[in-house]
Nucleic acid binder design. Structure first.
Lengths: 347, 347
DNA sequence: CCAGTTCGTTACATCGTTGTAAACCAGGTA
DNA sequence: TACCTGGTTTACAACGATGTAACGAACTGG
């Protein structure tokens, strides 16, 4: 079996506690004893039992990150950043995939892993305020991205200003003189707060630019995947072509781009395409994808910091962190005055 | 504080063990007692302490998945599948990112999380056989993808036939009559067994097709990202254009594709492009990316199954599982006789 | 009516660790 | 010599859950 403190203690001829003291760098251990214990530890290649430790300490050093789907590059990149930020604090990250499914999301917040995780970083899609209200508030939770419920929630939240970002993105399209600017990403069924906020920003921009709000230019989707974007774009083209399209995330945009190119439209010549999230794929698509770039590293870092504050018994008041974003103008919107190598085959 | 068995027991007026029996569906509990206990559990919303359980049981129900980088869609998709397969067994997955860094990989296999995880699913990049030899064999480990060392390793391994797959992919390019078939993905510095195997398959195919092995057509890269592929393609074009390119993974291929289109080449007209991994991005690139499609779900499932067998004290002999793959021919290689909508702007 | 069986419940020890408090052993002071 | 002081080490009791063995009660059959 695996060696325990007891085995090390016997081999070194000291008490269990002394070994524990050595392991934990307790100061008052004589050099000679320490050496003997360390030799014994090495010989048996002893490793502390983390389960016992966390039972004793009431802390496990593990936090959970719950996201809809790692297949989605945005969440994969977010997870990468979260894992790195957690690592800096010596935490381990455990990942739950909810598929954006309400039942699964409910399981995640229900404390199913209570006592295994010290905290939860949660990126919800389908939960309502009611679901949250029923939650036992034992394990601290920080919400990422989507804010749940309309009122003041008791949970820390990290996000970006979706309305402002969507507004700026849409305005950018309008500044190119485009007048039929479509939007892809509204979700009819789900709670989809994020989608609603981006829609709001889109509408604000249209109004600001003096453009009519044509409902036929708003393409609903079931999910935010590439296939959904492709299919939605197809519908838009069938029902009267737009001259620009703002997609609520990059995977939708890549899908839309695919449809456009496949059907012979030139991007950005015929249709401008703007995405949201700044996933890596967009930087290597042809044309490269203009997008809203949230500071993902900062989102992850802020979330981990908030959680750490909660864990150390910090403030009661729920914090609301708004992480900055910037717009990345690339070939798919071909901003004049900036250098953008046109695809020569189209030139 | 959080309720323990003891609190529930007191509330229900029974012993701790009886509550435990109810929680664990132990058969011999009278209906009346069970009801009372369940009521108490609900009232306190008691949750078992998983740390205590795993201390007692010697099992945590947590397995670790160590991959280079979730940013890479291949590993993100693999992780998705692993999490699903683990979920079916009631396991939780904890993710380590190694960045393909040898030091970090060594930490992962060194049992740093001994006793927290029951098993390890490991996708190594940089480790040598020597690193593995020094490992304490306490936590069962299953290797994914890369096989380590040349001889028989004591570890279970799940992978695909890289040589055969690369050979088939390259032959497909040759069958189109292309004679200057480049390869992107050789890594000079690292261990990179996978890259070597795919190179071997590539060479076999060239020989088989009676094509000369021109070393200037082999483009080395530092890593397997999009930027590396783009840059390698650029070098290939500068040093005498190839008429087809086999990339050792899809991100390299997407990078290469980007460079080709940016520099005015037509794909597949001027240059055929073939990738490896079948990540989702490739299906929505323009042109869509032909690729080798390993059965990722089966890889994940097999790995989890092997680990489960080890955990239940299974066989001593190391298992070697070879998961089937298929070739996905898409627009970037434009297989004649198959329907492939050409990009109308190019038609 | 009692031995034997089953059922429901319980006390206890244990998993491996660490905080607490107390014991121990110098060496120095009174 | 007796006492104190400080560093060093130790015994013990938790943390919360569960397997074991044993208990009393209710039931069976002879």
């Amino acid at each position: 079996m695996r060696p325990r403190l007891k085995d090390v203690a016997e081999l070194a001829g000291v008490s269990i506690k002394t070994v524990s003291n050595v392991v934990n760098d307790y100061p008052h251990v004589s050099g000679e004893t320490r050496a003997r214990v360390e030799a014994a530890i090495a010989e048996l290649s002893y490793r502390p039992n983390l389960s016992a430790r966390s039972l004793r300490a009431g802390r496990s050093g593990v936090v959970a990150l719950a996201v809809p789907d790692l297949d989605n590059p945005y969440f994969a990149e977010l997870a990468t950043n979260v894992i790195e930020a957690a690592d800096r604090r010596g935490w381990t990250v455990l990942i739950d995939q909810t598929q954006g499914d309400r039942a699964k999301e409910r399981v995640v917040i229900s404390g199913i892993r209570d006592h295994l995780i010290d905290g939860l970083l949660f990126s919800p899609l389908a939960l309502t305020g009611k679901d949250l209200a029923g939650r036992d508030e034992r394990t601290p939770m920080v919400l990422l991205g989507e804010r749940i419920g309309t009122g003041r929630s008791p949970y820390d939240h990290v996000g970006i200003d979706n309305v402002a970002a969507a507004r700026a993105a849409t305005l950018h399209l309008a500044e190119h003189g485009r007048r039929r600017i479509a939007a892809i990403g509204v979700q009819r069924t789900a709670v989809a707060a994020t989608g609603r906020l981006r829609l709001k920003g889109y509408r604000q921009a249209l109004a600001e630019a003096g453009l009519p709000a044509d409902p036929s230019l708003i393409a609903p989707v079931a999910r935010w995947g590439r296939a959904d974007g492709a299919e939605a774009m197809s519908r838009l083209l069938d029902s009267g072509a737009p001259d620009a399209v703002f997609c609520f995330n990059d995977t939708l945009a890549l899908g839309a781009l695919r449809t456009l190119l496949k059907r012979g439209y030139e991007v950005p010549g015929d249709v401008l395409v703007m995405g949201f999230d700044d996933i890596q794929d967009g930087r290597f698509a042809t044309p490269t994808l203009s997008t809203v770039a949230p500071d993902k590293a900062l989102i992850a870092q802020s979330a981990v910091d908030l959680l750490a504050e909660r864990l150390s018994g910090g403030t009661d008041k729920a914090h609301e962190v708004c992480v900055p974003h910037r717009l990345a103008f690339r070939e798919s919107t071909d901003l004049p005055g900036q250098e953008h190598p046109r695809h020569p085959a189209h030139a």
